[in-house]
């Protein structure tokens, strides 16, 4: 790949991320607003469409403050450490049969590896701010997000086993066609348990209610982001939304057939739209949960992860491995 090609792809990723950020923030405000009997932004531009753009301008032009007692070096780089992984995680997403930043055999692994870097940045931000609230928020993030990585990964194993590959493109391709003539071959149907685990764990990964421990606003004000302002805060905020997009996109690829329409063949030009539509549906459900649920308590959330989610997903991996190994044998025995 030429240097120009790489740059172009990066630029495309960046544009996608920014547009996503702006759209998602607008969407979040509107969805939460509607769920809460409000209208949401509606003053700036038609339907308030320019609200987020204005917010970005505001964030960009704000004074960049750093508390005197903060650890300057860590404080400055933490937002980028949060932002860059979630930016990079766009690499393995497959938007269409031929449309992806690059094809990696282990793309899924890369995506999870990258998202698991986020807690590091959060912890650094919390620690370096030299504020007690931030510190507690950072510690919570470290404890929880690392814990929820485990079920997230384990729940992805089911679809991976079914597709026999870690390459997102092949996982998506494996979901084309139908079972028994009418059920779309989406992995969510046999893997419903894994999907539930994935949904819960991804909500925790992106720190959304009911798992928004690290920024629980009624407890820690905004947790780790307390001392941040201006574009540094903007980066954290953007990363949060881009993470939401990524987990939803990965969920779409793993469980809902990625860019494919059910039953009919998907034309190449339609594929990205299908993919984005599915992903946004996922995001809508996440926002819906955010608008509907109260927050867990930190210890309950940890024990829920270690005592429920991880055993369940581990057991499911074992069960599914056995099923997949034994299925041909059984099928053969039955047919004989």
């Amino acid at each position: 790949m030429s240097a120009l090609g790489i740059l172009g792809r990066f630029a495309a990723m960046l544009v996608l991320l920014l547009v996503n950020g702006v759209v998602l923030i607008y969407m979040l405000r509107k969805v939460l607003g509607r769920l809460h009997l409000r209208i949401g932004p509606n003053r700036v531009g038609p339907f308030g469409l320019l609200q987020t753009t204005n917010d970005v301008i505001k964030l960009l032009t704000k004074e960049d403050l750093r508390p005197d007692s903060a650890d300057a070096w860590l404080f400055n780089i933490a937002p980028y450490l949060i932002f860059v992984p979630s930016f990079m995680a766009y690499i393995p997403l497959v938007f269409g049969p031929t449309l992806a930043v690059t094809n990696l055999d282990t793309g899924l692994l890369l995506a999870f590896a990258l998202t698991s870097l986020v807690p590091l940045g959060v912890l650094m931000a919390g620690w370096s701010s030299n504020s007690k609230w931030s510190l507690i928020g950072g510690m919570r993030a470290a404890g929880l997000q690392i814990a929820y990585e485990v079920p997230l990964l384990l729940s992805a194993l089911g679809p991976v086993m079914m597709a026999g590959s870690l390459d997102p493109a092949r996982i998506v391709a494996a979901q084309s066609g139908v079972w028994l003539g009418f059920i779309p071959r989406w992995f969510v149907i046999p893997q419903i348990l894994a999907f539930v685990v994935y949904a819960i764990a991804s909500q925790a990964e992106t720190q959304q209610t009911p798992f928004d421990m690290s920024e629980a606003e009624s407890e820690l004000i905004t947790g780790f982001a307390n001392e941040y302002g201006g574009m540094r805060f903007g980066f954290m905020y953007l990363a949060e939304f881009s993470n939401t997009f990524i987990v939803s996109a990965i969920g779409t690829m793993l469980f809902f057939g990625g860019w494919q329409l059910p039953w009919v063949a998907t034309p190449a030009w339609l594929a990205p739209f299908v993919f984005i539509a599915k992903t946004y549906t996922g995001i809508f459900v996440m926002m819906w949960a955010r608008g509907s649920l109260p927050r867990f308590r930190v210890d309950q959330m940890l024990s829920f992860c270690w005592k429920v989610l991880i055993p369940v997903s581990l057991a499911w991996v074992v069960v599914w491995a056995c099923v997949q190994r034994l299925w041909p044998v059984v099928a053969m025995a039955v047919s004989r």
Binding site: L37, I39, W288, A289, S292
Partner: peptide, 22 residues
């Protein structure tokens, strides 16, 4: 109870906003 909560928020979404556009 959680699922019921989802249903209630959705129902309220369809009830429409109560905002008075002062």
């Amino acid at each position: 109870g959680i699922l019921k909560g989802f249903a209630i928020t959705m129902r309220n979404m369809f009830r429409g906003p109560i905002t008075v556009m002062y």
